[in-house]
């Protein structure tokens, strides 16, 4: 089989693509390709991965211009001709090669009040949340986020408005809004309202289309817009 012609981003934001020939294998993933280059062709290549099975969210990269989780992306599904172009995720500063600095991404989770705030102690009984309740189902739909950054890298609004919280942070906030045990809901709505929050979303739905876990942050963001509007009309956000 003809070897793959792979272009990998090298350097920082001022870097350039370098080309490598990588042997083609059956069921080969993009992460396999990058790992082959690092282990056999150029050991100075930097990239990030951990679990290799789609759980940790650390290996996302831009593959032929589209943000993807590389450990679960088969070469055969995304290859164009015989070439692959692999770059670091967009909308994040490049540390080196394929590794991005995700500090701003996770800082925004904190800004969106993405931490659970309860008022029970270990001495209290377990909270009983019905698995088929409307809120629990909404939380279920949003909770499986692995923090890979694919949605954030795919979001045009983040590109032109860098202080926008982004789809992942707002999806996290939406999951917690639906947590019946959480007691910081007004503070959370205040944190996600406004032109750096849910009201900046233009509903392009790139996040929903590209989320590898099938989550729709757009849906949660739309719901946050309605909730914050109701709270603002009632004067709760002042």
């Amino acid at each position: 089989m003809q070897p793959l012609s792979v272009s990998l981003w090298r350097g920082t934001s001022n870097g350039q693509f370098a080309r490598y020939d990588v042997p083609r294998q059956p069921s080969q993933t993009i992460l396999d390709v990058v790992t082959y280059v690092q282990r056999h062709l150029d050991s100075t290549l930097s990239y990030r991965f951990a679990c290799r099975v789609g759980m940790c969210g650390s290996c996302a990269m831009s593959v032929n211009g589209v943000a993807r989780w590389t450990c679960r992306t088969h070469v055969s599904k995304v290859i164009k001709g015989n070439t692959l172009e692999i770059a670091p995720l967009a909308n994040l500063p490049v540390i080196k090669d394929l590794t991005t600095d995700m500090s701003a991404f996770f800082d925004k989770w904190a800004k969106a009040k993405g931490q659970f705030t309860g008022d029970q102690t270990r001495d209290d009984a377990f909270a009983i949340v019905r698995p088929d309740s409307e809120k629990r189902l909404e939380a279920d739909a949003a909770i499986e986020c692995i923090g890979c950054g694919v949605c954030y890298a795919s979001c045009d609004t983040v590109t032109w408005k860098p202080d926008y919280l982004g789809p992942a942070a707002l999806n996290r906030a939406w999951a917690l809004v639906n947590d019946e045990r959480d007691v910081a809901q007004t503070e959370r709505l205040k944190a996600v309202a406004g032109d750096a929050g849910c009201h900046a979303c233009h509903t392009h739905t790139s996040c929903a289309e590209r989320c590898p876990k099938g989550i729709s942050p757009t849906r949660g963001i739309s719901a946050l817009k309605k909730l914050t509007a109701k709270a603002a009309i009632r004067g709760e956000l002042d």
Partner: peptide, 15 residues
């Protein structure tokens, strides 16, 4: 602009 004002403007734009 205050977040509460943004939220109210969004509401009036929807209505």
């Amino acid at each position: 602009m205050k977040p509460s004002t943004q939220a109210k403007l969004w509401y009036w734009q929807r209505i």
